[in-house]
Design a protein around this nucleic acid. Sequence first.
DNA 1: CCCTGATTCGC
DNA 2: GCGAATCAGG
Length: 172
Amino acid sequence: MSWTDERVELLRKLWTDGLSASQVAAELGPGITRNAVIGKIHRLGLAERAKTAAAPRPRAAKPPRQNQARMNGAPTHGNLALAFAPHALAAPRVAREEEVVIPISERVTLMELRESMCRWPMGDPTTPEFRFCGGKATVGGGPYCGYHARVAYQPAQDRRRARDQLRAQRYA
DNA sequence: CCCTGATTCGC
DNA sequence: GCGAATCAGG
């Protein structure tokens, strides 16, 4: 890997846009490390930048408990499938909602995805715009952030609650 | 631990 | 010029 004109140009753009060195490295592809990016930045004399741009990653605001996304009308069997391919089954309404709830700045590419990040897919996997949520995957080593875990498993929880309510009435 | 940029120095 | 290793810090 070498610093071609295109690479340098992209580096300039992304760095100026306020991306971190590791993020820029991820965008430039495998073979470019964050050290390489930092080194190049210094050699180019780009070390000082208006670091008020997107520098500190804004955390995602916690979704309000009230209007939670739920997947009414989603297939009722295959909870497992929902867990593995939520994007395939998610209702359009949910997709629109997460556009609002999850900040774009939090989304990550495959290269940026870490073990500790939410692996909820966002967008069309066949396009370069495809991203993962990238939030903190805190839930017991699970694949999702708190919000998306809730979204993914909501239908199962709903059905269980409905069933339990029915039983409670029957035996009352 | 997660991450950030800065610096050094052998290649 | 390049970037891994390392450092100092949030």
